[in-house]
Design a protein around this nucleic acid. Structure first.
Lengths: 267, 267
DNA sequence: CAGTGGTCTAGACCACACT
DNA sequence: GTGTGGTCTAGACCACTGC
């Protein structure tokens, strides 16, 4: 493998001169070479040419493929690594980021125990409460870039830490990419949900945006989280995106924050 | 100005050879040259050699000063710019970041109106409720790296958007660096509080960490924010740091989130 | 126009991982 | 040892700003 390159960017067969690439800015806006390379790498990632966890070709190989210097692909990779799409490992290679790895396991979960760190309380116990197929209401369809009424999957689950139910969340997924997802498959899977999305559905979540509010517990949430109705809870509304800012998940979580807090770094 | 360099890093007077710098890794851990340059620039920033808003010397000048190539100082500056300590402006120079600028004005305020953006509701109305000098209780002293009982300033203020009081926050500052801060000076100042800290006290906040919880409004907060007692509010505990991770502020804010939300990006 | 940061190249050498 | 990413250099040229 890895010898059959995709076509559109390959140089003409007889090309021999290491001329500074056949990539040229069309006309209006100036775009540096390394940005164009970045887009090409992104396309390969999106097309699944290299899967999460796998190594991408070495800098030298990519430089040869794109007919640019190593420094130029280096800069492209640097940016992709800064965006957490790629991971560089000195002496080994550059790898496609994945949620299946120990270190990046709960990259998007910002709830921390008030004392101690994440590891101190062990893995969360997960319970799938519900999983059904339905027509997307307008407020779910819009952020998923679907039309109202298109098929979506909705699932609800509860996460407990050391026996205390702490998070209840509803997740909405577009029906197409996630066709075949069931409560059973979710329950059977060991590891983060986003890792399952990668391995079973080829969907890698790259980034997300959250809107956070304080709300009063309604009857259902209160009973699931075993708190009094009206108790303050953290409401976390997330939209998660794959490559190229394609939205792939809407999630609304309610967090108990009596023994945990949402941690955020500003800079 | 800008011809008198600081001493410890200047090369010996008679040096003529452009040898690859006099900076050498002491012994145990390997530290690349550009990291050492980064530390030196950081020291100059901390020492106030260049003030917020001012330009730092050009890459060429710094390269000459440190006896390294332009590419090496470039990489150092790149990292500092990525950390929002410096701002690069093509054709103009590299500048020390400041909270006094329009674009970076409310860099640390993540509360957004549910509809529209920050600019749509105009500037917040600010009201200083209280400002007093007191001995630091243990839970304030610790994060400020002070001893319990040392002098701190505490101030409380209310921020209102379009007439609706939305944020009430208590701020604690170390008494030393902020000696002379009064409610009057705060009230008189136009612009963000962190901009005042820079110009009046030479303290530039570089980063911060926040712990977010949902809490019920107590009597005092409820009346200040004009909500019912027990209403859910977002509690935001912030510790803010200057250069070199020196803590300089503890802040506890209570946010109404009925028309606003706390926005966060995950990646 | 000169000066700034930004891009691109080419080559040398270093640190690290595997085998 | 070989191959990977990481550092450092030197020089050329480009894009942007302001005089």
């Amino acid at each position: 493998m890895a010898t059959t390159f995709f076509l559109s960017t390959d140089a003409p067969v007889g090309a021999s001169e290491p001329e500074p690439s056949g990539l040229v800015t069309p006309t209006p806006a100036f775009s540096p070479l390394y940005q164009q390379i970045k887009v090409l790498i992104l396309k390969s990632l999106q097309a699944g040419e290299w899967k999460p966890g796998e190594p991408i070709p070495s800098e030298m190989e990519l430089a040869a493929r794109f007919r640019v210097s190593q420094g130029t692909v280096r800069k492209a990779i640097d940016e992709l690594a800064a965006e957490n799409l790629l991971i560089r490992r000195q002496g080994k290679g550059t790898f496609v980021a994945t949620h299946a790895e120990q270190h990046l396991q709960y990259r998007f979960l910002r709830l921390m125990p008030d004392s101690g760190d994440v590891t101190s309380e062990g893995p969360a116990e997960r319970r799938i409460v519900d999983c059904k197929r339905l027509r997307a209401p307008a407020d779910i369809a819009r952020p998923l870039a679907l039309r109202t009424g298109e098929a979506v999957l909705q699932l609800r689950r509860v996460l407990a830490f050391q026996g205390t139910p702490t998070i209840v969340e509803d997740v909405w997924l577009p029906g197409g990419p996630f066709k075949g997802l069931t409560a059973e498959r979710l329950a059977a899977y060991r590891g983060p949900m986003y890792a399952l999305f990668e391995t079973e559905f080829g969907v890698h979540m790259v980034r997300a945006e959250e809107k956070i509010r304080a709300v009063a517990a309604d009857a259902v949430s209160a009973s699931l989280l075993r708190v009094a109705q009206g108790e303050p809870l953290l409401s976390v509304e997330r939209v998660a995106y794959t490559y190229n800012d394609v939205p792939m998940e809407v999630r609304r979580g309610l967090y108990r924050t009596d023994t945990h807090h949402y941690k955020n770094a500003l800079s």
